[in-house]
């Protein structure tokens, strides 16, 4: 299913915020690519930079911080593209679903308005056609009696319904890539599976690539082809899901895997690895995971491991990677 040539290629993406005179390296040297129709998983603890990575791809982070690196979209670098041009890619070619359905819709505008304004910005449809398409989209994401709900405001919808509205808005202009930022964490467990299935089936139907940010390794195992594991702003391990989750090499990935209990239904929230990540203001000179790592050696405290290829498309950033057989057994 994966096309030979990727549609999105991110290389050496770095996003730095400044707060109170201190630099916060929220994202460091992140590189990955997404092919047409591919679902890429992005996992990592809270604060590891997943949302900032997605927002930096869309150019939303640059008003808050310094973004460097390349974001190639269909061969064109959009990281340096001016807002005026970039806006024709946002929403039309690359769409995004936010983490928080409760705060991501404008409380003063009707749902219909928020849907049709996207269509107005990106299509030639006239008023009536936009309305029809809006109803069709709401219907498509499973909102009952869609036509009558166009005139309602976000506060009249439940959290799950708002997330559906956001999906409808994001997919309205038939984008080629969807950035889905933990689309289900804010929702009830029962609704989580529904929303996820909805996104993935629509993606499949529309041949749309997806970057799926999630806390849930079960979801990654079931739905993604490739996965990137982030820690303290960096990708520490990436590759094909079967390999990375089947035989994790980075101690952090191993920890994440261990924290998923065996013999429980998939899509179980992952347990946290013991300890806490370092704060961005005071990252250690060496490996950021050192304080929590069992494989730590002297070298880990003085030098930072780079993300190196151990096989063709498998990368790990660790001086003492977990042995393949051992990791497989864990």
């Amino acid at each position: 299913m994966i096309d030979q040539k990727p549609i999105l290629e991110v290389s050496n993406l770095c996003t730095t915020f400044r707060r109170g005179g201190v630099d916060l390296p929220a994202v460091r040297d992140v590189s990955f690519s997404v092919g047409q129709g591919e679902v890429l998983g992005l996992v990592g603890e809270s604060g590891s930079g997943k949302s900032v990575t997605l927002r930096s791809i869309l150019g939303l982070s640059r008003r808050y911080g310094d973004v460097t690196g390349e974001v190639r979209w269909l061969g064109q670098d959009i990281a340096s593209m001016p807002e005026r041009k970039l806006r024709h890619i946002r929403g039309r070619e690359i769409a995004m679903i936010f983490q928080e359905p409760m705060t991501s819709l404008n409380p003063l505008l009707t749902v219909g308005m928020q849907l049709t304004e996207t269509l107005k910005a990106h299509t030639d449809l006239n008023r009536a056609a936009r309305r029809d398409r809006a109803i069709e989209m709401l219907d498509h994401v499973g909102i009952p009696s869609a036509a009558s709900r166009l005139g309602e405001f976000p506060h009249q919808f439940s959290g799950g319904m708002r997330q559906r509205v956001m999906i409808a808005i994001a997919l309205a202009a038939s984008p080629k890539l969807l950035l889905a930022d933990e689309p289900t964490t804010a929702l009830d467990v029962t609704i989580q599976a529904q929303i996820l299935d909805l996104i993935l089936s629509l993606a499949d139907e529309m041949q749309m690539g997806v970057i799926l940010v999630t806390h849930d390794l079960g979801v990654v195992a079931q739905t993604c082809e490739n996965v990137a594991v982030m820690y303290a702003g960096r990708v520490v391990e990436q590759g094909a899901v079967r390999q990375v989750l089947g035989a994790p090499r980075h101690p952090y990935t191993v920890g994440l895997m261990r924290s998923v209990p065996q013999n429980v239904p998939p899509r179980t929230q992952l347990y946290s690895v013991p300890g806490t990540p370092p704060s961005l203001e005071a990252l250690p000179v060496g490996c950021a995971f050192a304080s929590r790592c069992q494989n730590r050696t002297e070298r880990c405290l003085t030098a930072r491991p780079t993300l190196d290829a151990i096989t063709d498309d498998r990368r790990v950033a660790c001086f003492n990677p977990v042995a393949a057989e051992k990791a497989g057994a864990a």
């Binding site: 939303l60 005026r84 946002r90 929403g91 936010f98 991501s104 505008l109 996207t118």
Partner: peptide, 26 residues
């Protein structure tokens, strides 16, 4: 800085619409 304004940006709306419709009213 509100999330719904970030979302409006992510939708690719023109800047004047973001400022006039989403920011000013609120």
């Amino acid at each position: 800085d509100a999330e719904y304004v970030q979302f409006a940006r992510a939708k690719g709306l023109p800047n004047r619409l973001i400022l006039g419709r989403h920011v000013l009213r609120n």
